[in-house]
Amino acid sequence: MSPSPPPSSSVAGQPKRERRKEARPGELLEAALDLFVEKGFAATRVDEVAARAGVSKGTLFLYFPSKEELFKAVVRENIAGRFTEWNAELQTFAGSTSDLLRYCYQVWWERVGSTKASGITKLMLSEAQNFPDIVAFYQHEVILPGKALIRRILERGIARGEFRAIDLDYGVFLVLAPMIFLMMWKHSLGACVPEGENLTPERYIACQVDNLLQGLCVRPDAAPAPQSPPPSPSRS
């Protein structure tokens, strides 16, 4: 009996390169995210993205006709595309609004803040003035939906009598500020801090939420101070 031939790198006559075609968009987006975060938008070249993904530049352009479209796809894949699920979770959340706010910070950190995608915020802050079209896209796809989602959370708390009535236009920024700080710490500020002064994101988030809720939550009216008994009449 003749020995069996070694396993082929193809299936049903298709070479490996061709079989991986359906996976290429995801691989390109992953490679693009890595490079955009490492080098910024301006310095990233599409041929570098293609090389890191293991395909030709021509293959990349089959899926994404320009670097701008590639960047937009990265943002949609990692951030903007999550707003549908986040809004659905908000709609069905059954707990208190305080619990909802804590949950939203936790989910944001797990799905965005702790990932490479958080570096997109640093990229936008550092390069926004040079790319107005990218800024307009990011405002429409990320900033406005994000602010609307936070506003819904605050409105929920106010409507249920759990939160004080506040200026919602600025209350949104109170919620956003800790997120922005953590992303900048992860991708920039943290490198400037002396060794040993590490920040634990989960503890930082818990502290910030506690502070926010101290200011947001409605407190029962303080009990009136006990009145002193009237002085006893003096005896003459």
Rank of each mutant, 00 (worst) to 15 (best):
S4Y: 08
P7Q: 06
P7E: 01
P7W: 11
S8L: 08
S8K: 01
P15M: 01
K16T: 13
R17I: 14
K21V: 07
K21C: 05
E22G: 10
P25I: 01
P25G: 02
G26I: 12
L28F: 05
L29M: 12
E30T: 07
A32H: 01
A32K: 02
L35P: 07
L35G: 11
F36N: 03
V37E: 04
E38N: 15
K39V: 03
K39C: 09
F41I: 04
R45K: 13
E48F: 09
V49Q: 03
A53M: 09
V55A: 08
V55H: 04
K57S: 14
G58S: 08
T59G: 06
L60W: 03
F61V: 01
F61E: 07
P65N: 14
E69W: 07
F71C: 08
K72V: 04
A73P: 02
R76E: 14
E77T: 00
N78C: 07
I79A: 01
A80I: 00
R82P: 01
W86S: 01
A88S: 09
F93K: 11
F93T: 04
G95N: 02
S96N: 01
L101E: 00
Y103Q: 15
Y103C: 11
Y103E: 15
Q106E: 14
Q106C: 04
V107I: 13
W108G: 00
E110V: 08
V112N: 03
V112Y: 07
G113V: 05
S114N: 05
T115R: 05
K116L: 11
K116S: 08
G119D: 00
G119A: 09
K122Y: 14
L125Y: 13
Q129T: 07
N130D: 13
D133S: 10
I134G: 06
I134Y: 10
A136P: 03
Y138Q: 15
E141W: 00
I143N: 14
I143T: 13
L144D: 12
P145H: 04
P145E: 08
P145L: 06
G146M: 09
K147A: 15
K147W: 08
A148T: 06
A148K: 10
I153R: 14
E155S: 13
G157S: 08
I158L: 13
A159C: 06
R164H: 12
A165W: 06
I166L: 15
I166Y: 03
D169V: 09
Y170T: 14
G171K: 01
F173Q: 04
L174M: 11
L174V: 06
V175D: 00
L176C: 09
I180E: 12
F181C: 11
L182Y: 11
S188E: 15
A191V: 08
A191T: 06
C192A: 14
C192G: 10
N198T: 14
L199V: 03
L199N: 10
T200H: 15
E202W: 12
Y204Q: 01
I205R: 11
A206N: 10
A206T: 06
D210A: 01
L212A: 10
G215N: 10
L216I: 04
L216A: 06
L216H: 12
C217Q: 12
C217M: 03
R219M: 10
R219K: 12
P220V: 06
D221C: 07
A222D: 10
A222F: 09
A223H: 03
A225L: 11
A225K: 15
A225Y: 11
P226N: 04
Q227W: 11
P229D: 02
P230S: 15
P231Y: 13
P231V: 07
S232D: 02
S234E: 02
S234Y: 05
S234Q: 06
R235F: 06
